[in-house]
Simulated scan of single mutants.
Amino acid sequence: MSLRNFKTSNPVFNGYFWEDGKSSPKTMTVLGIFIKSMIGMLVIAAITVYLWRLSESGMSMRWFTLGGMLGAIVVSILISFKQNWAHILVPLYIISKGIFLGGFSSYAHNNFPELPYQAIGVTIITFMVMLLLYQWRIIVVTKKLRSVIITATISIMVVYLISFILGFFGIKSYIWGTSWLAIVFNVLAAIVASFALLLDFDYIERYKNKAPKYKEWLATWGLLATLIWLYVEVLRLMQKLAIRF
C-alpha cells in the first residue's frame, strides 16, 4: 500500500508520512529517532536547570513560561507547514520547550524541591510500561483506540485553551485549582497522555525503514511533545496533592 493512501490519526504526526516517500535513499530508523530524542531531552534538561538557578536568584519565571509556551506553539505550526525544515525547526521547538519547562517547573522546584525529579521518574516509568504493553501486544493499537485517544486529547486541549482565554478576563478555571475536580481532571489528562505514547510507538513502527530520513526529526517532535505533556500533567498533579495535603 502506498504511504500516500494511509492517513494517520495522531494530530502531531498527521500528514508526515504521506509525502515524498520515495524521494530519499535513506530512511527513518528507530536508532536515529532515539539519538535525536535523547539529545533533545538533554538540551531541555540543561535549559530547565539553568532557569531553576535564575529563579532561585529571584528572577521571575512568568515570562519565560509564557514565552516558551507561545514559541513552541508557533514553531509547531511552522513544522506542520514546512516539514522539510524540520531539522531546523525541531531544535527550535526543543529550546522553546526547555524554556517553558524551566519556567513552569521552577515553582515546584523552589517550593517542593523533590517534585520535579519525582515527576521525571514517573514519566520514565510510564514510558517504559507503555512501551512494554505495546511491544508485548497487551494493548493493540486499533482504529477504535486511536479514535478514542485522539478525541480525548482534543477535548483536553480545548478545555486548556478555553481556560487560558478565560484567564485573560480574570476568570479562573476550575482546572487550575486544588479541588478534587481539578485533581481528577489532571489524573484523566495524565492517563490520556500516557496512552498517546502508544500512537507514537505505532507510527514509528509502521514507518521505520520506509519514511525519508529527515522525518526522524518529525517523529522526534511527536514523541517529545507527548513525553513533555505527560511530565507536565504528572508534575501539576503532584503539586496539587502536595498543596492539598
Rank of each mutant, 00 (worst) to 15 (best):
W63C: 00
F64R: 05
T65R: 08
L66C: 00
G68K: 11
M69K: 01
L70I: 15
L70A: 14
G71P: 10
I73R: 02
I73T: 07
I73V: 14
I73Q: 05
V74Q: 03
V75H: 09
V75S: 07
S76G: 13
S76W: 01
I77W: 01
L78K: 04
I79C: 06
F81E: 08
K82E: 01
Q83H: 09
Q83L: 07
Q83Y: 03
N84Y: 07
W85F: 14
A86G: 05
A86W: 05
H87C: 02
H87V: 07
I88Q: 08
I88H: 10
P91M: 09
P91K: 11
Y93H: 12
Y93F: 15
I94H: 03
I95V: 15
I95S: 01
K97D: 00
K97L: 10
K97W: 09
G98D: 02
F100K: 07
F100P: 06
L101Q: 04
G102Q: 07
S105K: 01
S106F: 11
S106T: 11
S106E: 08
A108T: 12
H109M: 11
H109F: 12
N110V: 06
N110G: 12
N110Y: 05
N111K: 13
E114G: 00
L115A: 11
P116Q: 11
Y117L: 13
Q118Y: 11
I120A: 15
I120C: 12
I120P: 04
G121W: 03
G121R: 08
G121N: 08
V122L: 15
V122D: 01
I124P: 03
I124W: 01
F127H: 12
M128E: 04
V129A: 12
V129N: 06
V129Y: 06
M130H: 06
L131A: 14
L133M: 14
Y134L: 07
Q135P: 00
W136V: 09
W136K: 15
R137Q: 15
I138G: 01
I139G: 04
V140P: 00
V141E: 08
V141F: 07
V141Y: 06
T142P: 07
K143T: 12
K143F: 09
L145T: 08
I149D: 10
I150R: 12
I150W: 06
T151N: 09
T151W: 11
T153Q: 14
T153I: 00
T153K: 10
I154T: 10
S155M: 13
I156L: 14
M157Q: 13
V158N: 02
V158L: 15
V159N: 01
V159D: 02
Y160P: 01
Y160C: 03
L161M: 13
I162A: 13
I162T: 11
S163D: 13
S163V: 04
S163Y: 03
S163H: 03
F164D: 10
F164Q: 06
I165H: 02
I165A: 10
I165C: 03
L166N: 14
L166V: 04
G167E: 11
G167H: 08
F168C: 01
F168P: 02
G170A: 08
I171Y: 14
K172A: 12
K172W: 01
S173F: 09
Y174I: 13
I175T: 13
W176R: 02
T178E: 12
T178V: 15
S179E: 06
L181W: 07
L181H: 06
A182S: 15
I183W: 01
F185S: 10
N186D: 15
N186R: 13
L188E: 10
L188H: 00
L188S: 11
